[in-house]
Design a protein around this nucleic acid. Structure first.
Lengths: 214, 214
DNA sequence: GTCTATACACTGATAGAC
DNA sequence: GTCTATCAGTGTATAGAC
């Protein structure tokens, strides 16, 4: 019962501080961009002295790299629902739901990713060329199989994937514009559901994958 | 025939230099973001001394503001084809073509716009609230009329517009990612045509505005 | 109108006490 | 491991010669 706090958190301190820093960094990088973000602002938002940031992450770029990598992992995991599906209606519908949910829950992360790609991917170019390229090719094959099985209309798989990415990520990357056009209010739960339904309806009908229930 | 060059260009010098600066600024702001862009780099790319930039544009922000405003004008003019159309198939098809052509010809401008909106529109918030809001409302009314006339399926007009913006601008904003997935090569003329066709096919069928020719 | 030289502020990163 | 004080470098902006 003395001031022995060594066994209290084991090594949890490092993880805890890193998490605080990463959460603050994601927001600051998203709102100001890499060049506009300052280590001082990230330090203030995370409640730690600026020097501590450099203790956990040697350079600003290393911190940024870690933020982008974490986002990419979340983004890739959303693809699981795609593979597990039985057909295009189920698979693409679930993929849209998953990506829309990410846009809703991680809008800052999506913006950092968009900014990184717009600036010609200076720190994750290798991921684009390897992991993303392989993922895209694999998913394109699934789509082509669905087409050959007559379960959806013939469309270029890559352009369909681009449309899925563009449409779902738009709700995160351009959330400020959407909110402004929504009377300055963030989208409500009902509006998010309507957005999901609209996207799914147009795309699934657009590729002929929707059963003629309606 | 002496060194009298006063009447040679009248006041064209100012316009010419401003154009040089604006073209360079658009590229630099697009590739580095506002915070990452430097007046020195813009000066080097435009071939003018840095001090001259401050002569034509007092501050970095005033130059940036001008770039964003110019982009917004180009972006708005693409809407003319929408209004002049007879119905959804013609109107939306022409709008997609126009916006895809802008993504192809002005990729830097589209990126600057995206970056500005992602950073919560610090310099063009008033445009979003006035001009863009009015434009969106007007176009939504046209879409609703088409729906009531039975010329397309009932869809939420706003979400349809978001999909049109997201899909077409994606080819500019994420061009680096698309090029990487295209084997590191920019899209060819034929690939651009295929992209346009894919987008039009999926969206027009998705809203039930495509005549059953195929 | 144009350009060189420079003032002034800020940022990333680190040294060194605790 | 933590934090204060500080350095070196860079950026915007301007003064003033031409």
């Amino acid at each position: 019962m003395t001031n022995d706090q060594r066994p209290k958190k084991r090594q949890g301190r490092r993880e805890e501080n890193e998490k605080l820093i990463l959460e603050a960094a994601e927001k600051v990088f998203a709102e100001a961009g890499f060049g506009g973000a300052t280590m001082q602002l990230i330090a203030d938002m995370s409640g730690l002295p600026k020097a501590n940031l450099h203790y956990y992450f040697p350079t600003k770029e290393s911190l940024y790299r870690r933020v982008v990598q974490d986002i990419f992992q979340i983004w890739l995991q959303a693809a699981d629902v795609f593979d597990a599906a039985d057909g295009p209606e189920e698979g693409i519908s679930a993929y849209i739901d998953a990506k829309m949910e990410i846009s809703r829950r991680h809008p800052a992360g999506s913006k950092v990713w968009a900014s990184e790609v717009m600036h010609r991917a200076p720190v994750i170019q290798d991921y684009l060329e390897t992991t993303l390229a392989e993922w895209t090719q694999g998913r394109a094959q699934i789509i082509e199989r669905w087409i050959q099985e007559g379960r959806m209309d013939p469309v270029n798989p890559n352009h369909l994937l681009y449309m899925l990415w563009a449409t779902t990520q738009h709700y995160a990357d351009f959330s400020h514009q959407i909110d402004t056009l929504n009377g300055g209010q963030p989208m409500s739960d009902a509006q998010w559901e309507e957005a999901k339904a609209s996207v799914k309806q147009i795309i699934l009908r657009g590729i002929g994958a929707l059963k003629p229930t309606n």
